[in-house]
């Protein structure tokens, strides 16, 4: 079984974000592995580890796939130190400003070329937050879409995956034959911290660097020029007015009621 995991390097969630000409200024902030992708890596590791137990060379492998600038290598390296086997990074100057349509195009071509059985993803990236890439990958690849999984069962011998899809509308049990695109929600597991051994081992693991030409994708299909939507304007939201803060010495509840009444909220 060959599992691919799509991972993204994102600005640290805590970092103050800046926008320049309608796009996020990624240079000015610390970049980390999208934390929602860690749940996908953890889940895939939990699938393959018992199956590989006691084997000299692992029969079931995990490849991390990312699209991004050179420094996205760090995000892949983090996933390798958790235990994934190898990485592929697609870097190309033409990719800057790509929308979800283009990103899904590139990732799907990498997946197609790799001969994978399953793709795991987080449900969204913490920066763009569109939550569409896993579904788009299923669409482009013509694979089964098993997304928003709160639990995953992989039956490798019968090539079947069953998940519990957990969303605001409820819980659905669904299954499909390989190949499948699986996305996992953050309630599914507790991602491991890379061990010292894992970090050392990751240094020797291979990250292949690829360009668009390697997958026969033309520069015109991706990046800001190839994007199917354009940002006209981006404005920082005015900061919230400074509020009042009171210490409760027995009458804060009544004061809160007064405040709400004054604001005509009750």
């Amino acid at each position: 079984m060959k599992i691919a995991i799509c991972v993204k390097q994102v600005p640290d969630s805590w970092a103050e974000k800046k926008m320049v000409n309608g796009v996020l200024d990624r240079e000015s902030v610390d970049a980390v592995l999208n934390d929602l992708d860690e749940y996908a890596i953890e889940e895939a590791l939990r699938v393959v580890e018992p199956l590989n137990e006691g084997k000299e060379t692992p029969e079931h492998t995990i490849t991390l796939i990312s699209m991004g600038p050179d420094r996205a290598t760090e995000a892949i390296r983090k996933g390798l130190s958790m235990g994934a086997d190898s990485g592929v990074l697609v870097t190309d100057p033409a990719l800057a400003g790509s929308d979800a349509i283009a990103t899904s195009k590139v990732l799907s071509e990498v997946i197609r070329a790799g001969g994978f059985d399953l793709v795991f993803c987080g449900t969204e990236s913490t920066d763009a937050r569109m939550s569409v890439i896993p579904a788009m990958l299923a669409e482009r690849l013509g694979w089964a879409q098993l997304t928003f999984a709160g639990s995953v069962k992989v039956d490798a011998s019968n090539s079947v995956v069953e998940i519990a899809r957990m969303t605001e509308s409820g819980v659905e049990t669904m299954s499909a034959k390989f190949p499948c695109v699986v996305s996992v929600i953050e309630k599914i597991n507790e991602p491991r911290y890379p061990s010292f051994k894992g970090i050392m081992a990751a240094k020797k693991k291979v990250i292949e660097n690829k360009s668009l030409a390697d997958f026969g994708i033309s520069a015109a299909e991706v990046g800001a020029t190839g994007a199917w939507s354009v940002v006209a304007d981006a404005q920082a939201r005015p900061p919230r007015d400074k509020g009042v803060k009171i210490e409760d010495s027995g009458e804060a509840g009544a004061k809160l009621a007064d405040y709400l009444a004054e604001k005509r909220l009750v």
Binding site: R240, D241, G243, V244, K245, I246, E247, D248, E251, A252, G253, A254, K255, L256, A257, D258, Y259, L260, A261, V266
Partner: peptide, 28 residues
């Protein structure tokens, strides 16, 4: 959370909420 709050109460929710409820009910 206080950085965002228009009205912040430093206190125990189990004391503040019941009192606020009573006061709102009294106003009504």
């Amino acid at each position: 959370i206080f950085d965002l709050a228009d009205f912040g109460v430093v206190g125990d929710l189990f004391a503040v909420l019941p009192q606020a409820r009573e006061a709102i009910a009294a106003k009504r």
